[in-house]
Nucleic acid binder design. Structure first.
Length: 317
DNA sequence: AAACAGCGCAACCGCTCCACC
DNA sequence: CGGTGGAGCGGTTGCGCTGTT
């Protein structure tokens, strides 16, 4: 657009960082903190734009970065979180202390995505690739990929939400829950009403991505848009400064949630409002960093139980 | 040994969000 | 309340390294 670049790029260096530049940046941040990224390069004596400095620091130079290969547990967690959060790399990264969004993004694009594909799982939907798409859900190769991605994102969030609500209100029996748990909910009456509502009132209930840009002012539970803040506690557990002042937010349009909670009975809107508010309050109690039990990965919910086993490794590229 | 292909990773780019005025 | 600018995020690219032919 007409927007000027983040900085005056004339005379600024691009490309790989030299050890000397790294040293300058580390020294400056250790002494002064990063403060304003925009003014940092000048003050630190670097011929870089602030954006580049921020990226270099957060992705490479930060002292709390854990380098080296991902452990199987980390990979598994990334896959599970991706199934819930989609391509929200920063949100996923916040659950893996010491890992950066860039690192996770690279891991996904170079390893995990291929592995899932190889196993016949659609990496976008986390559903079996052979699934037949209904009239409203087109295969990823559709021309309207971008739009569908938003839909998928909304659907995944709905699945996560429905799942958590279900767990909260109706704790599952101890027996193992099938890996198609979300899919079954999505195909159930509740999911159906959610889809119907989306179809009939796309302006009132857009995908979180598009909704976010138009109605973030409300913010509170009683507003038209609710923000479910996943209070990322990754830093608090480790002492990291990465997320101390940051929250990853998933924005959910209230009509959507109401509809999901109330089912297709729109006449009980008042009731649904109450119940949705209750649900929201419960949803707001998002688990802290190391408590990923909401995924049930160990007992109840193991999305890809065999994904990291020996037998599946031969599939990895 | 050279050419080529594939992979992994660091960095850039463009967009959105959000705070501030 | 709208405009502006800084920060952050996700998608994409470019390049070096490694394996294969």
């Amino acid at each position: 657009m007409g927007r000027s670049p983040c900085c005056d790029k004339r005379g600024l260096k691009k490309g790989p960082w030299t050890p000397e530049e790294d040293e300058l940046l580390i020294k400056y941040i250790n002494n002064n903190g990063h403060g304003s990224w925009r003014s940092l390069p000048k003050q630190a004596g670097l011929l870089r734009c602030g954006k580049s400095c921020r990226l270099r620091w957060t992705n490479y130079l930060r002292p709390d970065i854990k380098r080296g290969p991902f452990s199987p547990e980390e990979e598994k967690l990334v896959i599970q979180l991706h199934g819930i959060l989609g391509n929200r790399w920063a949100a996923i990264a916040s659950q893996l202390p010491g890992r950066t969004d860039n690192e996770i993004k690279n891991l996904w694009n170079t390893h995990l995505r291929k592995r899932l594909l190889c196993m016949g799982i659609n990496p976008q939907t986390h559903e079996p690739a052979s699934i037949t798409y209904g009239p409203t859900i087109k295969p990823p190769s559709s021309p309207s990929t971008r739009h569908m991605a938003q839909w998928e994102s909304a659907r995944l969030e709905a699945e996560a939400r429905l799942s958590r609500e279900s767990f909260l209100f109706n704790p599952p029996p101890l027996q193992r829950i099938g890996s198609d748990y979300f899919l079954r909910i999505w195909n159930s009456e509740v999911g159906e009403s959610f889809r119907k509502f989306n179809k009939s009132d796309k302006t009132a209930c857009q995908s979180p991505t598009s909704q976010a840009s138009s109605s973030t002012k409300g913010g509170s539970v009683s507003g038209t848009t609710m923000e479910m803040a996943l209070v990322v506690a990754g830093s608090s557990a480790t002492g990291s400064s990465l997320n101390k002042d940051k929250e990853s937010k998933i924005k959910i349009s209230k009509p959507c949630l109401d509809n999901v909670v109330a089912g297709s009975d729109s006449s009980s809107s008042n009731e649904s409002e109450d119940s949705s508010d209750t649900a929201l309050q419960l949803l707001l109690d998002f688990p802290s960093n190391n408590d990923m039990s909401f995924l049930g990965q160990t007992e109840n919910y193991d999305l890809y139980p065999s994904i990291l086993t020996e037998s599946s490794l031969h599939c990895s590229l």
